Simulated scan of single mutants.
Amino acid sequence: MRSLDRTAAFARAAELATLATSTRRAILGITGAPAAGKSTYAEELAAGLTTSGHRVALVPMDGYHLAQSALEELGIADVKGAPHTFDGAGYAALLRRLRDRTGETVWAPRFHRELEDSIAAAIGVGPEIDLVLTEGNYLLLDQEPWATARGSVDEIWYLELDDDTRHARLTARHQHFGRSAQEAHDRTFGSDERNAQLIAATKHLATATLSL
């Protein structure tokens, strides 16, 4: 498994963009534990590649969270973020559509933390896009439907961050979005940490590791 820094990662992402063909896009996945910095890094990478002239789109996995109302109806809202709280099959189908360039715009949902819900068809990926970046927790999970999703992705990088920093970020995030200090602590070291351990167990399947 390779180890990448920012410079090497940017160069490799740019190389992947050039490998797209008239019928197939390149797809690069970025995974890691909750609050490892996946979203921030993916946004920075997409912006940098676009500035450099590459045709790139960012499509996060989080858009496939089940709706908050559905989670509550199912009785699983307290573990939101676990694998079974996503429409993984829908995400896998989206990646297949993104991979195969058909000349049509593909529309994907976007998750809004302030709403705790996704908005459908909020991200448009036009036929000109060569490289799709996607980031999320379970890109390497070796069970269905995530394994099927992984089959559409050319490379998946595992983003590493020390646990103390990650825990502090998670706790602050939960408080920012309305949880009390105790609720934030319990969520960070409860369901979030169980998810983090599950994700860490998939690290060996990554194409490369990335430390920022």
Score class of each variant (00 low, 15 high):
Arg2Pro: 10
Thr7Pro: 00
Ala8Asp: 12
Thr21Gln: 06
Ala26Val: 00
Ala26Trp: 01
Leu28Trp: 06
Leu28Met: 12
Gly29Ala: 06
Ile30Ala: 02
Gly32His: 05
Pro34Gln: 01
Lys38Val: 12
Thr50Leu: 02
Thr50Asn: 05
Ser52Gln: 13
Ala57Gln: 02
Asp62Thr: 09
Gly63Gln: 06
His65Met: 07
Ser69Ile: 14
Ala70Cys: 05
His84Gly: 09
Ala89Met: 05
Gly90Pro: 07
Tyr91Ile: 02
Tyr91Leu: 07
Leu94Tyr: 08
Leu95Tyr: 07
Arg97Asn: 08
Gly103Glu: 09
Val106Tyr: 01
Pro109Phe: 04
Asp117Pro: 04
Ile119Leu: 15
Ile129Cys: 11
Leu131Arg: 09
Gly136Arg: 09
Gly136Phe: 03
Leu139Tyr: 11
Pro145Cys: 11
Trp146Ala: 08
Thr148Lys: 08
Arg150His: 07
Gly151Asp: 05
Glu155Asn: 12
Tyr158Asp: 01
Leu159Gln: 10
Leu161Gly: 06
Asp163Glu: 15
Ala168Thr: 14
Gln175Ile: 06
Gly178Ile: 00
Glu183Tyr: 01
Ala184Gly: 02
His185Ser: 04
Arg187Ile: 05
Thr188Tyr: 01
Ser191Ile: 12
Asp192Lys: 09
Arg194His: 14
Leu198Gly: 13
Thr202Trp: 04
Leu205Cys: 03
Ala206Met: 13
Thr209Ala: 04
Leu210Lys: 01
